[in-house]
């Protein structure tokens, strides 16, 4: 029911003439009601529902100075107040959204949020690129190389890896550590160090540093 309400709001907001292929929003909701479970519509419906719950969580429950990020069914928040206040926040969130199942992990040890490594050093948040351990498993490497590097040349791969490093790393220390990872990965694939140095210089030059 909550998801259907969210869908109705969503359609009313984002479809200016309230029609899709000649069907009114009421018709669409009648077609969906009772048949969404297990259908390809389920996941988009869940994301539309989260789209509205995210706004409530951000506006009402989380301080403007904190970070709130969600990707699919995982969310990440920062918290600079007491643990007791954090537990009250979760109690309120659970009572307001009882249909959502909550599994909470802290970052006492670094974790990964999708492909971002997240942790803290004595309370200071850090982020970087997360590398799945299996990528370093030689037994799997040939298959994974094919998956990670389909029909691409090494220069594209390097540029993408460097862009990702800049986007994900919280500071220059993490960034330099990540460029080291990229370099090792390149050598592991049998390329020369010279290619890495050249690509890095070109990358810096492209971005004016």
């Amino acid at each position: 029911g909550e998801a259907i309400n969210a869908l109705e709001n969503f359609l009313n907001t984002y479809i200016p003439d309230h029609l899709i292929l000649g069907m009114t929003i009421d018709t669409i909701l009648q077609l969906i009601r009772g048949s969404a479970s297990g259908s390809p519509l389920t996941i988009p419906l869940v994301y539309i529902y989260f789209f509205y719950t995210d706004q409530i969580i951000m506006n009402d429950l989380i301080d403007k100075n904190e970070l709130f990020v969600r990707y699919r069914d995982e969310a990440f928040i920062t918290w600079n107040h007491s643990e007791q206040q954090l537990s009250s926040l979760f109690s309120i969130a659970k009572s307001r959204f009882p249909e959502v199942k909550w599994h909470i992990s802290s970052i006492d040890y670094p974790i990964h949020f999708v492909d971002i490594k997240v942790g803290h050093n004595t309370g200071h948040l850090f982020t970087g690129v997360y590398h799945q351990e299996m990528f370093y498993n030689d037994f799997l490497s040939s298959e994974l190389n094919q998956l990670q590097n389909p029909n691409e040349n090494i220069w594209n791969w390097l540029r993408k890896a460097l862009l990702k490093a800049v986007r994900y790393c919280c500071d220059s220390v993490m960034f330099h550590s990540e460029t080291g990872e990229i370099q090792r990965e390149l050598l592991r694939r049998g390329h020369s160090e010279h290619i890495f140095d050249e690509a890095l210089d070109e990358f810096y030059e492209d971005f004016g540093v």
Partner: peptide, 28 residues
């Protein structure tokens, strides 16, 4: 390397790309 400057320039690059993508999708 000035990392803050690099981040700033990559951020501008990302914003320009997102704006161009949005414009393309609106025109199509």
């Amino acid at each position: 390397v000035n990392y803050e400057k690099l981040r700033k320039h990559v951020s501008i690059y990302d914003k320009n790309r997102a704006a161009a993508k949005k414009e393309r999708s609106e025109n199509s």
